[in-house]
Structures are given as structure tokens and as C-alpha cells.
Design a protein around this nucleic acid. Structure first.
Lengths: 193, 193
DNA sequence: TGAGGTGTATACAGACCTGTCTACATTGTG
DNA sequence: CACAATGTAGACAGGTCTGTATACACCTCA
């Protein structure tokens, strides 16, 4: 697994970390294998021993991203609010934090799909699964809040989330999250039974 | 300008047409110059006589796209509805049509920015200008409809539009436009003076 | 001590990509 | 007709990219 004595992370971990940062910040097609091995301080053969190809590395990058992103997202929301209705709104406070990150550059999954432009690439299904997971979580909150027409409301909130991410990334304005939150509040109020 | 006798479009027009289709459908980085000249039936030197570089062609592609997209968007909306409040909702009917297009693959400007990942690229400013134009148009409709807090409402509707585009592109579901329309109607109703 | 697993360093093959060069064909205009 | 502008065809230089091959170093465990 990891090196026994040295505290240095394993080659695989360093590759994934470097690939994640570079792929997200500069785009998949703009980052070559040589950049990744230079950044992670690993030999090229080590990379190809751990990952069959660049496409496999891309898929691993998305899986790694998902494994970290969603639990962290959910944890932050549930730390901010206890009631399901409040948690729906807290989503946008978490987005607000995220948008303020210096390196924020939109959704890694959406960006990757745009760059790949190929629904047969393994990364496509990981991205779709990711969006499904978020939608399921929103729906569970909407249902727990006992709001009417849960499916529609959940999907509308998902639209607000995606829209806020795109607008914030393009205009570089975190306050987009606040406007989206106000819009979500109005939709939720209109869905009271 | 154009060929006098033959009805064949000029080389420049054919290049732009081929580049637009290929760039949008397959992504900028996935389409090489050779593909474009093959598709447009033009010599490579003709392309480089009309466009200084691939980057210049990308910028021209975005300018061309903008020149067609927004007037057509506006025209369709104003054909569908006369009152400003109705036109705000008609936006989403136009999106619904667009999403059903076989080749729909999201917003060309957003996709290009994601692929370039470089705010110094000339294409970046064209894309930002495009989004500003849409926001200005929405704001003018909101103001004409005499709704309160025009700026906020306009930006919220813009968020719904961007979100609908992303969700529809990812899930390949045109009905996303209808859910976004219902959400917009609720926001508009809440903004009645 | 010696074997095997893991990582390193680097060269290289082969594909592809942008952009340039040269030589030739076509067409409208004075 | 002759000239200039425009387009064609294709070779090619120079760079980048992915993925492979080779030779060597280190560490662990028997």
C-alpha cells in the first residue's frame, strides 16, 4: 500500500493528486503526461504501471474527485443546518464558499464531459452518476421537508445549482450563489403544502 | 465578396461553416485544421490566408456564432409572445426547441471557455460579452414588465437558463426547459409589485 | 546473501498537429 | 490578351503527445 517508514505518499497517490490539480485547473487536453510526472516527481513508467493509459487516468481522476467531493459537500451542508428545508438552502451557502476558492473553475465533471465530447468514454458515465447522486440527495431533502411535487422541485433546485456554477465560473462572481439561494427559497415557499 | 456566377459560397464562408459545426459537435481541441479543410473542401493555404491561426479561427467562430445566435434567439422569443412578461417565459420555449436538436451539446461559448481554460484568449471576451448581451436583454424584459427588484430577478432567470442548458446537455432531456420555465414563472409571480 | 517487487531515468517510436512553402489553376477586369 | 487576385494541391519542417523499451537503484523479506 503506502510506504512503510517514509511519510511520503505512494507514487499512485502523488500521480492522482498532481493529475487532479492540473486537469481541473488547466483542462484535460491542455495537460500532458509529462506535466503530470514532473509535478508528481514520478517516473513515466510508474505512471503507466499504475494506469493503463491517459484515458484510464482521467477516469481515475473523476472517481477520486467524486469520492471526495460528494461526502464533503454533504457533510458541510449537514453541519450548517439540521432541518431538511434549511439544508436545501444551505446547499447554496456551501456553493458560495466553493465559488470563492481562488482555483474555482466550474464543475470538474461537466468540464470533463465538454472536453471529451464522447459519451462512450468511461468518464462520461462517472459524471452522469455524480449528477444523479446529487439529484437523489436533493430529492431526499425535499421529501423529508414534506414539500409538494418533490420530483419537480428537486430538479428545479438542481437546475439552479448547475446554473449558479456556470455563471459563477464565467463571471467570477461568488455572489451568484446568494441569488440562486433566494430563488430556491421562493420555489420552496411556493411548494409548501 | 462572394463568387459572382457560381452559387458556391466563398472559401471563407465554407471554412467558417465547417469549423462551426466541427468545433461545436466535437470540441475545439478534438478538431484539427486538416479536418476543417477536408470538410469545407478548401486548400490549407486558403484557410491560412483568411485566418491568421487556429486561435484566430476560433475567435471568428465565436463571433460568427454570436452574430447568428442572439438575433435568432430574440426573434423567436418575440414571435412567440408580445408582452414582456410572456416573453420572459417564452425564452424557455425557445430553449425547449433548441434542446431537442439532435446536435445540441450545450452552450458553444461556455464549452469553448472550458476547453481553452485561458482568460487571455480572445475567445474569452467574446463569450463574456455574449452572456452580458443575454443578461441585458432579460433585464430589459423584466423592467418592461414592471417587476420589482429587476436586477436580481434578471440574474436569477439567467441562472435558470444556464442551468437548464447544462442539465439538458448532460442528461439529454429537453423537458428540463419546461421545469425551468415553471420555476421562472414562480419567480416572476413573486416579483409582482 | 540473494530474489522479487517497486520505482527511476531516459531514450525513442510513431502518430498527430500547426503553420509554411512552392508550384500551378481559375477567374474577373482593364 | 494580360494582369492580379484568389484558390488548389500537396510536401514538409518543427513541435508535441502518448505509450514502450531498456538499464539501473533501492528496499524488503526469506
Amino acid at each position: 500500500m503506502s510506504r512503510t517508514q517514509s511519510s511520503r505518499p505512494s507514487a499512485r497517490d502523488r500521480i492522482l493528486k498532481a493529475a487532479s490539480e492540473l486537469f481541473y485547473r488547466e483542462g484535460i487536453k491542455n495537460v500532458g503526461i509529462d506535466r503530470i510526472i514532473a509535478e508528481s516527481g514520478v517516473a513515466k513508467m510508474s505512471l503507466y504501471n499504475h494506469f493503463k493509459s491517459k484515458d484510464a487516468l482521467i477516469a481515475a481522476y473523476l472517481e477520486e474527485y467524486e469520492k471526495n467531493w460528494f461526502p464533503s459537500f454533504q457533510e458541510k451542508i449537514e453541519h450548517l443546518a439540521a432541518e431538511p428545508g434549511d439544508r436545501l438552502l444551505a446547499i447554496f451557502d456551501v456553493l458560495y464558499e466553493w465559488f470563492q476558492d481562488q482555483d474555482f473553475r466550474g464543475c470538474a465533471f461537466v468540464n470533463t464531459i465538454v472536453e471529451l465530447a464522447d459519451i462512450t468514454h468511461p468518464g462520461y458515465h462517472i459524471a452522469v452518476k455524480h449528477k444523479q447522486l446529487i439529484l437523489d440527495y436533493i430529492r431526499s431533502l425535499v421529501e423529508a421537508a414534506e414539500l409538494i411535487d418533490a420530483e419537480t422541485l428537486a430538479r428545479q433546485i438542481a437546475i439552479l445549482i448547475e446554473g449558479a456554477i456556470v455563471v459563477a465560473a464565467l463571471a467570477q462572481g461568488a455572489e451568484t450563489a446568494i441569488r440562486a439561494k433566494e430563488a430556491a427559497a421562493i420555489l420552496i415557499a411556493a411548494s409548501q403544502p
